[in-house]
């Protein structure tokens, strides 16, 4: 149930904040160095990093629980044990992928 609620919450976060930041990022790149510097400064601020890491996790969580929902649409994975394992797997997977991506982005992994 938690994973199902998270699917909604992360979907809303990605729809509102995710797409707004993606559009801002593309516009900043198009407008040139001064505009990009403003975006870069915001992205590297403590709040900016928390938002970006949060959106990265939201992306992976929504993607993995989306795969879970697609497979359940076919009628699979409704048995309690399998269903729960699948749900837990999306949580573990999204955290692992977020940590790996940010470790790489911040230069800890090459």
């Amino acid at each position: 149930m938690v994973v199902s609620i998270l699917h909604r919450a992360t979907g809303i976060a990605l729809s509102v904040a995710g797409l707004a930041i993606l559009s801002w990022w593309l516009m900043a790149l198009a407008l040139g160095p001064a505009a990009y510097a403003t975006f870069d400064k915001a992205a590297h601020s403590p709040v900016g990093l928390v938002v970006l890491v949060g959106l990265t996790w939201s992306f992976f969580q929504h993607l993995l629980s989306g795969i879970r929902h697609l497979s359940m649409d076919t009628g699979a994975a409704f048995e309690l044990g399998v269903n729960k394992r699948f749900a837990v797997l999306t949580l573990v997977g999204s955290i692992v992928l977020t940590v790996l991506l940010w470790a790489w982005l911040l230069g800890y992994v090459k």
């Binding site: 797409l19 707004a20 993606l22 559009s23 593309l26 516009m27 790149l29 198009a30 407008l31 040139g32």
Partner: peptide
């Protein structure tokens, strides 16, 4: 939102925003 993002991409590709 989509129009803004697509404008940015077009400006990047064809050079319009700067």
């Amino acid at each position: 939102g989509a129009a803004i993002a697509l404008y940015a991409l077009a400006a990047l590709a064809f050079g319009g925003a700067q």
